[in-house]
Amino acid sequence: MILASLAGDVLVWVVWVVAAIALLASGFAVVLFRNPFHSALALILNLGSLAVLYLLLSAEFVAAAQVLVYAGAVMVMFLFVIAYLGGRADAPWASSQAAVRVAAVVTCVVLLAEVVLVIALDARDGLSSAAEITEGFGSPRELGRLFLGDNLLAFEVSSLVLLIGAVGGVILGATVRRGEVEE
């Protein structure tokens, strides 16, 4: 029994380490690749490794949505636009203002250090133990219940926001028809 649990723990650790490395590497890749197309591909890997981490955190439904909706639909659109723009989408990597770049990196590192410090200080007490979860935690059923119950509003509003986004995409992407009668 203990052995099985231990084996499970080791397995989870292995998966976690692999996913974490993939996550960070692909994250850096998104930012560092010269070609937007490659960056977008890296982001797909990033989203995939996130989905794995979500699974480890017992968020099955979110993981599924991540893969299907996000990595699937949204990224396809991204790749499509990049392909539409073609080679023209390639943008120079380097900044003309090196000072800004240095300052940006320094700021981000400082910010990271601060947040990590906070987490580390907190990890000693609050974060060290996670609450026990029930069987259905993170299942589609549980989330469905929430979306139609406590968080009904969030559900409805999300769909509205998506509608507006779609309309916006159409408005912005559509060619302006010339010669239409103006009053």
Binding site: S95, S96, Q97, V100, A103, A104, T107, C108, V110, L111, E114
Partner: peptide, 16 residues
Amino acid sequence: SGLLRVYALVVAVGLA
């Protein structure tokens, strides 16, 4: 091209 990043940079510095 520098501008936008500077805007965001100032936000980030302020945040940090």
